[in-house]
Amino acid sequence: MNSILTIKDPKPLTSNPTEAETTVRDVVLSERLGYSKPADIRKLIKRHASALEAMGSLRQSGVMIEAGKGAKRQVTEYSLSRAQAAFIISKARTPEATNLSIVIAELFAMHSESKLAPVDCAAAAELDAIAARAKARAEVHALGPEGWAIVRSFKRSSRKRRKIGALPRR
């Protein structure tokens, strides 16, 4: 996905050197998806926060911006993982997002037809972990609203957290 998002602009999306994985800043993703204001994509991120958190921590930080006639105010800026960025791309309703969603869908089709293979054991293990999390989320979804209530209460608990999307121990 990184190469797809850099077709128009040779600059990399962004990588925070203090974090272990590459992240995409919301303002950069907003620009690449054709939004005129970063606030538009932030509304989309807030609306889908629970789904994004199921893919990992939703990283956010306070950033000072200049608004109007020199007034400064703090806004929340998000840094999304690649999976979270792909999810937001699928929810955005811009021509650029539609184009990227088609590419993601084509890659998914290639994967499901076994035309893509992991390059090493670590990649194979990661694919297995993704499949396990998807299965756990499907089990929670099958429980209906009660299942989601269990997951929400588990996420708020002070106990040691397991991967989001996995059922809490009973």
Rank of each mutant, 00 (worst) to 15 (best):
M1A: 07
M1V: 13
I4A: 02
L5G: 01
T6D: 13
I7A: 09
I7E: 12
L13M: 10
L13E: 02
T14P: 00
T14Y: 15
T14Q: 07
N16V: 02
P17H: 07
E19T: 05
A20V: 12
T23S: 04
T23P: 00
V24A: 00
R25Y: 14
V28M: 01
L29P: 04
L29Q: 01
E31N: 06
L33Y: 08
Y35S: 02
Y35A: 01
S36R: 14
K37T: 07
P38L: 01
D40I: 07
I41D: 00
I41E: 00
K43A: 09
L44N: 05
I45C: 04
I45S: 01
K46C: 09
K46R: 14
R47L: 09
R47I: 04
S50H: 11
L52K: 02
E53S: 05
A54G: 05
A54F: 04
M55L: 12
S57F: 12
L58E: 04
Q60W: 03
Q60R: 06
G62V: 13
G62M: 13
V63T: 06
I65M: 01
E66V: 14
E66R: 13
A67S: 12
A67W: 14
A71S: 03
K72P: 01
R73L: 11
R73T: 02
R73Y: 14
Q74P: 01
Q74G: 03
T76H: 03
Y78I: 03
Y78A: 00
Y78C: 02
L80H: 05
S81L: 13
S81T: 15
R82Y: 12
Q84T: 01
A86L: 11
A86S: 13
A86I: 07
I89N: 03
I89V: 09
K91A: 05
K91N: 10
K91Q: 14
A97N: 00
T98D: 15
L100C: 02
S101A: 11
V103F: 11
V103D: 03
V103W: 15
E106F: 03
E106T: 03
E106R: 13
L107W: 10
H111W: 15
H111R: 15
S112L: 09
P118F: 11
V119G: 12
D120Q: 07
C121Y: 13
A123E: 10
E126G: 07
L127V: 07
L127E: 10
L127M: 14
I130L: 11
I130M: 12
A136S: 12
A136P: 02
A138V: 08
A138K: 15
A138I: 15
V140Y: 08
V140S: 02
H141Q: 14
H141G: 02
A142V: 01
L143S: 07
L143Q: 08
G144M: 07
E146M: 08
E146D: 11
E146C: 10
E146W: 06
E146H: 10
G147N: 10
A149Y: 09
A149S: 12
I150M: 12
I150K: 07
I150C: 08
R152D: 05
S153L: 14
F154Y: 11
F154P: 00
F154Q: 11
S157D: 09
S158P: 02
K160R: 15
R161Q: 15
R162L: 08
K163D: 13
I164K: 03
G165E: 05
G165M: 06
L167D: 05
L167W: 14
L167I: 15
P168F: 06
P168I: 02
R169C: 05
R170W: 11
R170K: 08
